[in-house]
Amino acid sequence: MDLQVISRDGEPEYAVLPWSQYQALLQAAGGVQRQNAASAAQPVDSAACAPDDYPSFDQVGPLRQAKELTLAQLARAVGISPSYLELIENGTRQPDAAIRRSLAWELGVPGWRGEA
């Protein structure tokens, strides 16, 4: 099996393998086989969402809690300190573009990727 393991902080976080091998694993596990990669992933088109549709940064805390993440867990995943994340959550700080992208990814939000 051609498997690539991606680690974060010395711990395995993701496994990447060829599509055909993924399909074989799904089949062996009794899962539904998909015909192509396009049907497997349906990314959110953030260009189709107006910035007004994005949650404001004061919603980071409720979004984090809805995903059952602690402040420390989300901060670690985003690559910032818990105290800095707390400042973002309470509106004291506005995150830069890289942090906005990371927050959007971790919280499953289609926005916060390019807007200022």
Rank of each mutant, 00 (worst) to 15 (best):
L63E: 01
G79C: 00
D52I: 13
I6C: 03
S102Y: 04
Q4I: 13
Y84M: 02
G91D: 10
S83H: 09
P82M: 04
P55R: 00
P82G: 03
G111N: 06
V16Y: 07
Q65R: 13
V78K: 10
V5S: 04
L74S: 01
S7F: 07
P51L: 01
Y54H: 03
G61P: 01
L103C: 03
E106D: 09
E11P: 02
L17Y: 12
G61Q: 15
Q35N: 11
A28F: 03
G61I: 00
W105I: 10
L63K: 09
Q27W: 12
A40M: 09
I88S: 00
D58S: 13
Q33F: 02
D53H: 00
G111K: 14
I80F: 07
S83D: 12
G111Q: 13
W105E: 07
P95R: 02
S7A: 08
Q27G: 03
L17Q: 15
V44N: 00
S81F: 06
E89D: 09
G31K: 15
Q33L: 15
L103H: 02
L17H: 12
E106L: 11
P18T: 01
E11Y: 08
Y22P: 01
A47W: 06
P12T: 10
E115K: 06
T70C: 09
Q94C: 13
R8P: 03
G114Q: 12
I88E: 00
A38N: 14
A66M: 14
S20I: 15
T70Q: 05
A66N: 14
E115P: 05
P12F: 10
L3P: 04
T92Q: 00
Q21V: 15
G114Y: 15
P110Q: 06
V109H: 13
A38R: 09
Q35S: 12
S39L: 07
P62D: 14
G30Q: 10
A77R: 15
I6M: 09
P110L: 03
W112D: 04
G111M: 08
Y54E: 06
Q23V: 12
L74I: 05
S46D: 09
A38T: 07
P62H: 10
N36H: 02
A104S: 15
P110T: 02
V109F: 05
D52T: 14
A50V: 04
P18Q: 02
R100T: 00
A98C: 01
L3N: 08
L3S: 11
R113N: 06
S83K: 11
D53C: 12
S7K: 13
I6A: 04
P12C: 10
A40G: 08
S39W: 04
A29V: 09
A75Q: 04
D96I: 03
Y14Q: 04
A75M: 03
